[in-house]
Nucleic acid binder design. Structure first.
Lengths: 341, 341
DNA sequence: CTGTTAGCGCCTTCAT
DNA sequence: ATGAAGGCGCTAACAG
């Protein structure tokens, strides 16, 4: 049942180049023959062989998505949005889950180059040196690149991020408006530009309110439930704040759990604000006040940018900065005017 | 810098067919030339062009994964495991997220056929008629197929499932052992074989304990937080049980939330047991007692099965049934001997 | 506007 | 054990 361009040509009574031309919308063809070829293709349920055309240097309609961990709800939702948006435009996604291991990153690079992926979207850190040199190869090959949730000027590429500074600022403002003065931040490992910006935004809001963020209340940790719990536990035992700003929803859950196991009530004794607004935020108890990232839109936008470039519709790289938004649920509450009262 | 088989042949002083032979481990080659060719390939960092070899009917090293929704933690973790396991064996995954829309299913089928995916893993219902006919085409093409989390005899294919009967049985047993008598089940839309088996297992345990499962306490709903909450709410308002068995972790969260908003305490007033043991189970408050599916192992096993078949190492289809396991956390507790005491 | 033809990189008989 | 040559399905000059 495998139709080739020859079958179509024969049945349409034209040559294969004519068929090829209508497929690719190239060269001049009389409207009449175009329509008839189109009809024949339809009738025969013909679909061009991707590998044959890739072999001659054409597109493969495949985009690689490099992500640290699709089982993490944030990246899961992002991947889904990217897959959806790409699908509409006729592209398909190869997932590459690095599990935070830089070696895997470089492995994926070379495999994507080999398979002639039309473009690559990065959602990982790209920290390791090997990754960077491997990246160079890809850049030289001219493959369009895009980066999401992060803005590292490693190579010219499209970027879609949120205004992390604003996110940090908004979170702080919310807590401050509730009367909190002693606020801790549970941050990640500090490797992304986003994290640093969030801290800066947070500090700005504090300063504007005439406060300062105590360095000892900035707690670095890994982005996992376990390490988050541990970090929060240590903090609470050492120096209990009245509010915590956790840098993602998982860490917020961690903070809430650590609090609960110590008899600290959320939000009565401790307010917790998260980041991302993934499905987790609705699942926790109490439901999480959090800074929402427009995940679906972010996915849609990277894909648009990248595919525009793949199709040669645009050349200049662009950066899109989306706004985060405060979503108030029930994990934050006014600070008590006096402790323990 | 694109190396071809010709470059290798020239540098090695042999013909391309010799090189081809060592690449594919085919035909007879002197050990000496094999080693030298291998060395040259290494030196030149040569990697065969997948498209060219696909064009001649060889493998593409790509596997399609058809899943309803990777942003759902269960499928996210499954996808990750599948991607990992496949990666180790040199295969890559194209994700196809159907969003529970059968039309998308058939679209993906045809695209995977076109791209000559070496195999396909289904994690979706395959309910729609169109999907089934489209499936036929794929079966005829001889593409190895595998199905996970479900056992529908639509076509000969490998299957990896858990013992859902046992899962339902275990859940019931746990609740019964805690003294619960009035137990409700929040099930899905009933389309999968797994669901039906769980109910059967549940009923078996009830019967063994001399009880029966009241039909009116089997609540069908969609697998989403929203509809779960609504279903639970209606149930609670109508006829409050002392325990609920929800068919996945999301529905458990829904039940817990519906309970809380009514002042029903979990687990004091109401025990809730879930299914899947996704990351959600640890995130909720209280942490969820749930029936654990060995997600990672399931992923690994389908991949092994499918790839074995792709590589012609096995022909007969096999079915692997893994055991679910009870994970006790804090959402279940002994039934009160008397209501309201 | 349309047809002819030479590759793209690799696999696979068929000879040697 | 190795080489030569045709073909996989399609694109892109190059001729009409």
């Amino acid at each position: 049942m495998k139709m080739t361009i020859y079958d179509v040509a024969e049945k349409a009574g034209v040559s294969i180049s004519t068929v090829s031309r209508v497929i690719n919308n190239t060269g001049r063809i009389s409207d009449k023959t175009r329509r008839m070829v189109l009809r024949v293709m339809e009738e025969m349920d013909y679909h061009p062989n991707v590998h044959a055309s890739a072999l001659t240097g054409k597109k493969t309609n495949m985009i690689g998505l490099i992500t640290p961990d699709i089982s993490n709800p944030f990246f899961g939702e992002l991947a889904k949005s990217i897959e959806d948006s790409a699908g509409v435009l006729g592209f398909h996604i190869i997932i590459c889950s690095t599990d935070y291991q830089p070696e895997k990153e470089t492995k994926y690079f070379s495999m994507l180059r080999q398979k002639q992926a039309d473009g690559i979207i990065f959602a990982t850190g790209l920290d390791h040196d090997d990754s960077v040199t491997a990246l160079d190869d890809i850049v030289k090959s001219g493959t369009p690149l895009a980066m999401i949730t992060q803005d590292k000027p490693l190579a010219p590429m499209d970027v879609v991020i949120i205004d992390d500074f604003l996110g940090g600022y908004t979170a702080a403002q919310h807590l401050i408006s509730l009367g909190h003065k002693k606020i801790a931040c549970i941050v990640g490992n500090g490797s992304t530009t986003g994290e640093r910006d969030r801290i800066k935004g947070f500090q700005k809001a504090m300063r504007q309110a005439g406060m300062t963020l105590d360095e000892s209340l900035i707690i670095p940790t890994e982005y996992s439930l376990e390490s988050g719990k541990q970090a929060a536990a240590e903090l609470f035992d050492r120096d209990l704040p009245t509010a915590v700003f956790a840098f993602n929803d998982v860490l917020s859950c961690a903070a809430i759990q650590a609090a609960r196991s110590r008899g600290i009530r959320v939000p009565e004794d401790l307010s917790v604000i998260g980041f991302d607004n993934t499905i987790l935020a609705e699942m926790t108890a109490p439901p999480l006040t959090t800074i929402s990232q427009p995940i679906r839109e972010m996915g849609r936008r990277v894909v648009e940018l990248l595919i525009d470039e793949i199709q040669g519709k645009k050349k200049a790289k662009s950066k899109i900065v989306l706004s985060p938004e405060l979503v108030i649920r029930q994990s934050t509450a006014p600070a008590k005017t006096r402790p323990q009262q």
